[in-house]
Design a protein around this nucleic acid. Structure first.
Lengths: 342, 342
DNA sequence: CTGCCGTATGATATCGCTATCAACAAGCGC
DNA sequence: GCGCTTGTTGATAGCGATATCATACGGCAG
């Protein structure tokens, strides 16, 4: 039996570069160059190869490329949630930053779980990514170990680190929590409650900022804190408003750790006939699109989510290319949006 | 110079299966089997290999695996948007369905663009995916051509197809649009407006259902339609309410093609002092979490997004495994949620 | 006209893994 | 005890691309 490209025992049936080369009458290596480094090949050959590619419908095999070049052209991104608009905007920024670079972006959803994060990192490392973008600063010791061993460049997003060797893009969650609380205090509120859910890293640090500000104003009172581990939803915000009012009936303002909870709290206040903000001020965090439009509009903290993704991806790309970044820590700040609800 | 695994010219520096095998004192092939098909190897060898894996911190190289086995263990998923909660819930369903299967999920965001979709499919085909999950039924001729040539199994999500050869999981957008309109008609509304944005496939089919119902009741009037190509946002909903009222001042109900627009319309109505629903009924589509909580709560159509993702992934998995699916079309239906706003 | 050099092309050897088949040992029926 | 099946393990040959080095070919200085 004659062995041709078409009937080799283990062949996948796909068009290979070798077939393209044969059709163009050049060596495989030349075909490879014509495709990936067109400048190194004469016009005539390049044209012949291009034509063969089109005629045969050649699609390069990424696995073979990765194996031969030990460059995967993959960037892995881990976010704690895909249903949270915050992180989808981060992703949008990342995609836009990497758009022209032929990187394949692997999106992983850790669901706010360290265990899941560890599992995903392990899986993604199998793809030998050129770089990784992680959300948050705190990762389990095992994860840090694994990442160090793998020597994959990593950029952390969302918060600012005190460890200046880490590459970080974000803003200070503590400062932002402090700023919002400070704003409520300046508005004359005394009994300011804090509602936190999910209790991920970011919530905890916002709570830390809240506590700092309350302590500075001698207003701290643990009765004013409602913290639960469940995922943040509008329904939960509605429920936790009730819990807060039961626990601290004299509460005159509530700082919700994110806008979803705040929306729920406002809707619930309306249903109970509590006037916002005259009886009770409510504010949130993140400035989701609905916050500016709802009635009353929501006082909240606008966070540079898109830019965090964008800048983090740029930074990672620079590091992958071996460039020395101007700074390893990028603080993109935040903006307090004073609106009707507080 | 002695050539060992560690100093070969093109070696990547990573721990390879060969090193694991050497350490365990077995052949590479045996190590491979001990890891991927443990049942085929004796207990003793399996233990030795497992130990070597741990000691060396071996991470399999997915590219090499894919190349050697011509199985990528990759499933590519294309959605038109990541900021739209509808599709992130579809993704959640997909992830849950595939959780235990060691598939790597490539998430692609087409941004509602056929061109982008074509580009992404081309890119993902390079990874030789075992299967693909696409949103919607209508794809450009080129895309269909490419997909046919590639022989990759494809499942389409979100709508029902008339073409019974296609694998489809979703619900009838036309019927859902019809049902909502019919509901408004039964409630006694005569001048029912339709607000559509983005004008993607799903919006157009919902509009089709709306028109059918209006025609059946002899209520059709093109003045009652406001259609724009911009992406759906709350802000746009607010704006389009104004446009609708300018265009058809006698309008007594509005069917928004999705909840985001409906939210914006309701907020805007409130700001203009228009009572909802007594002066103007407003309803949406998709039943986002906020819809049940806002005041007034939103009448809308609940869609089985999570289940669409889940069932589509299951179906695809079955097809990949070579099973004959019980049915090629899965209709998961929809539920009209009658609430306060209409 | 010779020889050197830079450039365009090609031949070959991997990359790290698995498919495939050969080799071998053990168990079993006759 | 012989041949045969069954079950493990190993040797070898790819998978489809690129890195690397060799070769061929002009052009140009001497």
């Amino acid at each position: 039996m004659i062995k041709t490209a078409a009937n080799k025992s283990r062949a996948s049936g796909r068009i290979t570069l070798a077939m393209v080369a044969e059709r163009a009458g050049v060596a495989t290596m030349t075909a490879s160059r014509a495709i990936t480094q067109p400048d190194m090949v004469s016009q005539a050959l390049r044209d012949r190869v291009d034509q063969a590619v089109v005629e045969l419908g050649y699609v390069p095999n990424r696995a073979a490329r990765a194996l031969a070049s030990s460059q995967s052209k993959v960037i892995a991104v881990l976010v704690p949630s895909l249903s949270n608009a915050v992180f989808t905007e981060v992703l949008a920024g990342i995609q836009d930053a990497l758009d022209a670079d032929d990187y394949q972006i692997l999106i992983g959803n850790t669901r706010y779980s360290d265990k899941e994060e560890e599992k995903l990192i392990g899986t993604y490392l199998q793809s030998n990514p050129d770089g990784m973008l992680l959300s948050g600063l705190s990762h389990s010791a095992r994860v840090q170990q694994i990442l160090t061993n793998s020597r994959v460049p990593v950029v952390s997003m969302m918060d600012m680190s005190t460890d200046t060797t880490q590459l970080t893009v974000g803003f200070s969650q503590v400062q932002a929590g402090h700023a919002m609380t400070h704003y409520l205090i300046e508005k004359g509120h005394q009994r300011i409650g804090f509602i936190g859910a999910q209790l991920d890293e970011r919530t905890l640090r916002r709570a830390e900022g809240y506590r700092q500000a309350m302590r500075e104003a001698s207003l701290a009172d643990s009765k004013l804190e409602v913290m639960v581990g469940e995922p943040s939803t509008i329904a939960l915000g509605a429920e936790l408003l009730g819990r807060m009012l039961a626990q601290a009936p004299d509460c005159d303002a509530i700082f919700c750790c994110n806008d979803d909870l705040a929306h729920g709290a406002i809707y619930q206040a309306q249903r109970r006939g509590i006037a916002v903000p005259s009886q009770l001020a409510i504010c949130g965090f993140n400035d989701l699109p609905a916050s500016a439009w709802m009635n009353p509009s929501l006082t909240t903290v606008a966070t540079p989510r898109y830019r965090i993704g964008y800048e983090a991806a740029r930074l990672l790309r620079a590091v992958i290319k071996g460039e020395q970044p101007a700074s390893r820590q990028i603080d993109l700040g935040f903006t307090l949006m004073a609106r009707e609800s507080a």
